[in-house]
Amino acid sequence: MKKDLARYGISFTAMLLLWWLASITVDFVLSGPQSSILPNPVKAFSTLINHWGAIWPNFVRSAARLVISLIAAIFVGATAGLIIGFEEKISRFASPILYLIYPVPKIVFLPVILILFGLGDISRIIFIFLVAVFQVAISARDAAKNISPQWIKAVRSSGGNKLQIYRHVVIPATLPSVLSSARISIGMGIAALYLAELSYTNVGLGYYINNSWKVFAYSDVFAGILAFATLGLGLYVVVEALERGLCKWNYLDK
């Protein structure tokens, strides 16, 4: 644990140093108001702290949009993926559909979603949900396909029925993969959240960053980016804690 913290500390310091160096370089190369386009870390962090009162409502709204979307995506994606992966007959029909839709950039659906569900939060949540759900579904499907037949035989030969096979084998066996895909979905979800908050809203970190760009408040832009990073980091920590708590067998000292 101490080693982990030390490693994180070194990485964080290295990142700040590189950021600082980039900021000095940009300041040196560009002139006029553009020279402050990349503020140094101290400026960005102090803006984050000083403007926290203004950033906080945007942070809360963005966090709510993201968390609701991701929980729905993990629940729906994992359930669908497990069934598609485990039930051969369903897989034959559903897998091609999954592969057909998965590579399509979901941004193309945004106008349709906005028309169907309006300009409010529901549309944004549906959009982020769509971006994340296929990732989770495909990971869960692949994990369910690779379940050892011996585990299923063990439950069946002890009198287990289909539901009990799901409860005692399919769900626990695929949980590590589902949580891994949840972690990937956080990054994808934040990217989608930013896009979804660029227009038709006046609250959210995406709006805050975009609005700060328009008024050349570069320190606020980076304060918003740091707030996004904090949100992502918080969610990663939660997923990691869930993984350690629910998948103890994967974290044993062998």
Binding site: Q150, A154, S157, P172, L175
Partner: peptide, 14 residues
């Protein structure tokens, strides 16, 4: 009837 499988089939998460 109890069956012991060839590779035992222990469930790693239990």
């Amino acid at each position: 009837i109890a069956l012991i499988l060839q590779d035992i089939g222990l469930l790693p998460w239990k």
